[in-house]
Design a protein around this nucleic acid. Structure first.
Lengths: 125, 125
DNA sequence: TCCATATATCGTCGATTAACGATACATGAG
DNA sequence: CTCATGTATCGTTAATCGACGATATATGGA
């Protein structure tokens, strides 16, 4: 937990960008599509429709979301589209995760600005 | 509604877990809250309500979402709650991002299984 | 030319989300 | 006990999402 002062905390500009990428990742079907793209060396046609058990139009919509988030690009092949992953938009999210991990768990944080009270016990909710 | 219920897809469990965490990160206000928690050494009371410009009940709801995703824990202090970050649930998402980044951009992937066609140009929409 | 294949788009419907104000709940202070 | 403070919950409403079938579009092949 040392180097993170070299990395400036993402400001409200980045909040929207990070949230957009996270939103694209926030559906199990889209995670499955990404895993499927990872399991092949970068290209698939409509095998994705078989992989997830949903209608073709639904899968196309999920692919549209992934593409508009920049996570997936589609190169036009024959009548097919060749989909592949583009990691560049993940940098800010990865950085945020790194910052969170860099600070360790909540047990490391001595609880804060109460004048004269006892130690914080791990109470949730 | 018979989609991914009983499908024996390999990483089905993982997909749900990753999507849940990503969903908690998929709103700009929640990213701002996380950034605010990062900017302090782990603890705040209701300063979050001042930071984001929303109603107290709305902020409480966002905190509830972050807590139920496991990203934030709250230790009860005086009348306040001491919030802090818990990085442990981020491991799977971080791993997925690492896998995507490890494979490089789509330009590295020679496009796939079309028998005798030319190179794929970057056609996106 | 016409057909088959692969993908995208449209319209709809039910479910979920995000926001708010009002109010309830706990607890330390006086 | 009563009040003030900080947080959570409830009820509502508008907006967005996820899924579907039907249909449109593009293009290679017969």
């Amino acid at each position: 937990m040392l180097g993170q002062n070299a990395i400036p905390a993402p400001q409200s500009d980045d909040a929207n960008a990070i949230a957009s990428v996270a939103k694209a990742l926030s559906h199990p079907v889209r995670i499955k599509i990404i895993n499927f793209l990872l399991s092949r060396q970068g290209c698939i046609g409509g095998d994705i429709v078989d992989e997830v058990g949903l209608a073709q139009s639904t899968v196309s919509e999920h692919l549209r979301i992934l593409k508009s988030a920049g996570l997936v690009v589609g190169a036009i092949e024959h009548p097919r589209i060749c989909y592949s992953l583009d990691p560049s938009v993940l940098a800010a999210l990865k950085d945020l995760i790194g910052q969170i991990e860099a600070r360790g768990g909540p047990q490391d944080a001595p609880c804060c600005y109460t004048p004269g009270s006892r130690d914080p016990k791990g109470a949730d909710q």
